[in-house]
Design a protein around this nucleic acid. Structure first.
Lengths: 223, 223
DNA sequence: AACTCTTGGTTGACACCGTCTACCGAGAGG
DNA sequence: CCTCTCGGTAGACGGTGTCAACCAAGAGTT
């Protein structure tokens, strides 16, 4: 009696951990509920008592990744002024991508389960985006673009937010894809590229850049 | 005798076309050689006479997408001056992503077969990127970044190329993902965003922007 | 002409996978 | 005590990639 077999819901959590292990070592495409059960020494149907389908366990893992990402972004240093905040946001974004490549790839680099079927995943995803959007939106556009497209007059901030997000997201995606290693750039260049991109963003927004190379954001949030 | 069954290599080409159809209607994850053979009315092993594995047919499709992308980029208008060329390159890039979302997603939005196993795919990928790199590299950096990271002194062009590529790629990725529709931005803003990003890139590179909203690049190259 | 070898197709099997259905033991509630 | 749910088991079905064996037609050689 001193040795309970397992707390209720214990297998559920164990499944998720084991699934994470599989994704980490073998890639998300190799994740199978059968392999999970095999590793846990339970029958091939046991996980189905906790997850309706393979996509549901994956969706929960992705949802947790978004939640972790959001916590990470919220833990970034606050500087008080919008420009500095933007820089911190960018650094935190890159820093997360580098510190948690598995989670980052799951969120942005692999096809997600159909969002319509997994509202909790969707909710976490939207929450993370809203943080980004807020951080960027504080920035007043000090250098407005002259020839605005008709119909977009009131949306300079949104357009700049999209521009900045696109740059950061594109850079993080490129850095994680194998593409870059095969191009034969020196490692210093690859590593300096996010810093350089943040500086260019600063220039684009009319700010004399003051960013330093990213000191790692404290990694509090467990993925 | 007037009716030859098929030219040699005919089935090979038919497989690729059928595979493209499957990817288009059902998504790349639903591509299976058995479904291909079923649709073509041949035995489930027939495709294996032309492709060593499922990944090999996918790799060939991706390689063709890169080749088509490269032809598209090369067909862009040439303006003579580096700044204008950069703008045309950016417009061509977006234009391809919008005109051939299937190919674009295959190249940048889904996990590729292991590049090491598919050198031809890699070759085409590198070729496309080298075009981008050239188009960007012609641009002399009129506004060099002051505090360069040590070890990257001679690589200002590469760093700017990565910055510009990241922005364009990130924007194209975002525009293709469902994410954007759920954020509730007006359609005009979404459509203007690539144009705006190109303008911001121009500012970042120290150029007073002269770009106009993208006229579609002629779509000569069959995907 | 006969003989062989390659090419491009066939069928059959195997081991995976997700998922449906049925069963079943333990515990909770009436 | 009886029933009902919960969390586990076992078995089956159809899907997948892929290996192995076979086989017909044609090309080349002797």
């Amino acid at each position: 009696m001193s040795e309970r077999k397992a707390k209720p819901e214990d297998l559920r959590e164990a499944c998720i951990q084991e699934a994470l292990g599989i994704i980490e070592t073998a890639g998300v495409e190799k994740l199978s509920l059968r392999e999970v059960s095999r590793r846990l020494g339970v029958s091939h149907q046991a996980p189905y008592k906790h997850f309706p389908s393979r996509d549901h366990i994956l969706a929960e893992i992705v949802a947790r990744a978004f939640a972790s990402f959001a916590r990470y972004l919220e833990a970034r240093p606050r500087t008080g002024d919008p420009d500095g905040d933007l820089g911190e946001m960018g650094k935190a974004y890159f820093s997360y991508a580098m510190a948690h490549p598995l989670q980052y790839r799951l969120m942005f680099g692999t096809p997600l389960p159909d969002p319509a079927e997994h509202p909790e995943m969707m909710r976490q995803s939207r929450h993370a985006f809203s943080l980004l959007r807020e951080g960027i939106g504080d920035l007043e556009s000090v250098l407005p673009i002259p020839d605005a497209v008709p119909g977009t007059e009131g949306y300079a901030d949104e357009l700049d937010a999209l521009f900045i997000w696109a740059t950061i997201h594109g850079m993080a995606s490129i850095l994680q894809s194998h593409t870059l290693q095969t191009l034969g750039l020196p490692n210093e260049v690859v590593e300096a590229s996010p810093f350089h991109a943040l500086q260019r963003i600063g220039v684009a927004m009319g700010k004399a850049s003051t960013a330093e190379p990213a000191p790692p954001v404290p990694d509090d949030a467990a993925p």
